[in-house]
């Protein structure tokens, strides 16, 4: 029983990293209709920003906050200078552009910082606590709570503020929104900026466990995409729940299903993905949309 609790909570923490990235992907998709395949690579760059700030002697928390701000600007600039040219055009072209960005950002990170693993300090203490007899790491709990907090903030932003309403309106119908005076271009920049800021959180959460490398987010991106599809592309809550589900099942399957083990556990989200899509093509929480990937 205590192993089980431990696996579940560690699985939630693992899933929370996928969830942060999944939320970023949902955010971009909600505001531009695109899937940003470079979201993970942008998160890696963010983690390196934080790494540099830590190197300059900033406390970890300040370094991460700093990287969140820089990432927001990076996301907004990428939208303005690059993605803007492809919006409203052929979505397939735009998707290829984001895949190009994935390669570019990974390359930039490797070129500047090399491909060696670098240690990244954890925001949370390395202690453990006792929950119902199970030994659970404070880092796992902290990671999970961080995602819960972010989800609440996002929900408040989108449902409770004028900015959130404007972001949603522009996502649904930009030209109609413009007729009501909404600054469409600026709102799209904000959407991409917020997504990149979320990615920065994901990067800071995953880096201590995996150590920092340019390819750190590759697996997480694949899992996040699976979570987004399972949860429904237009549902932040769905994405988070699906990401948690993936994290937990991945952990449990590795231990309790003998033939899966640690080698095959990467296949777990895809088995879930296929089953969910067979039963509910629009995802667990999503409304029907045409997804062009």
């Amino acid at each position: 029983m205590d192993t089980f609790i431990q696996l579940v909570i560690d699985g939630l923490a693992l899933g929370s990293v996928y969830a942060a990235l999944a939320l970023a992907i949902v955010l971009v998709n909600q505001s531009t209709g695109l899937i940003n395949f470079s979201q993970g690579a942008m998160a890696v760059l963010s983690a390196y920003f934080a790494y540099v700030l830590i190197g300059w002697g900033f406390p970890t928390i300040l370094a991460i906050l700093g990287s969140i701000v820089v990432s927001f600007l990076l996301g907004a600039i990428v939208e303005r200078l690059l993605i803007r040219r492809f919006e409203g055009g052929d979505p397939d072209t735009a998707v290829v552009v984001t895949i190009g960005l994935l390669t570019l950002f990974t390359g930039i990170a490797g070129w500047i910082w090399g491909y060696n693993n670098r240690q990244f300090p954890s925001l949370f203490p390395l202690e453990t606590v006792d929950i119902l007899g199970a030994v659970v790491s404070v880092r796992s709990i902290g990671t999970t709570l961080t995602i819960v907090g972010i989800m609440v903030v996002l929900q408040l932003l989108f449902q409770g503020t004028k900015l959130g309403l404007a972001l949603r309106a522009v996502a649904i119908n930009p030209s109609s929104a413009a007729y009501s005076g909404l600054p469409v271009g600026r709102l799209l920049m904000i959407g991409w900026g917020l997504a990149a800021a979320l990615g920065a959180v994901a990067g800071a959460l995953v880096a201590p466990a995996l150590t920092l490398t340019p390819g750190m987010m590759d697996t997480a991106l694949v899992y996040a995409l699976a979570a987004v599809i399972i949860g429904g592309l237009n549902s932040p809550l769905g994405a988070v729940v699906a990401a948690w589900g993936i994290g937990v099942l991945e952990n449990l399957a590795a231990v309790y299903v003998p033939f899966i083990g640690y080698d095959l556990k990467i296949a777990v989200p895809f088995i879930i993905l296929f089953v969910v899509l067979l039963v509910r093509p629009q995802g667990l929480f999503g409304r029907k949309v045409v997804v062009r990937v």
Binding site: A166, R168, A169, I172, S175, S180, G181, L182
Partner: peptide, 19 residues
């Protein structure tokens, strides 16, 4: 019509008053 389908009627009207 340019209606914002996924928003509620009230939200559509609030978008109208955005400025």
């Amino acid at each position: 019509r340019g209606t914002l389908g996924q928003l509620t009627v009230r939200e559509n009207l609030r978008v109208g008053a955005y400025l």
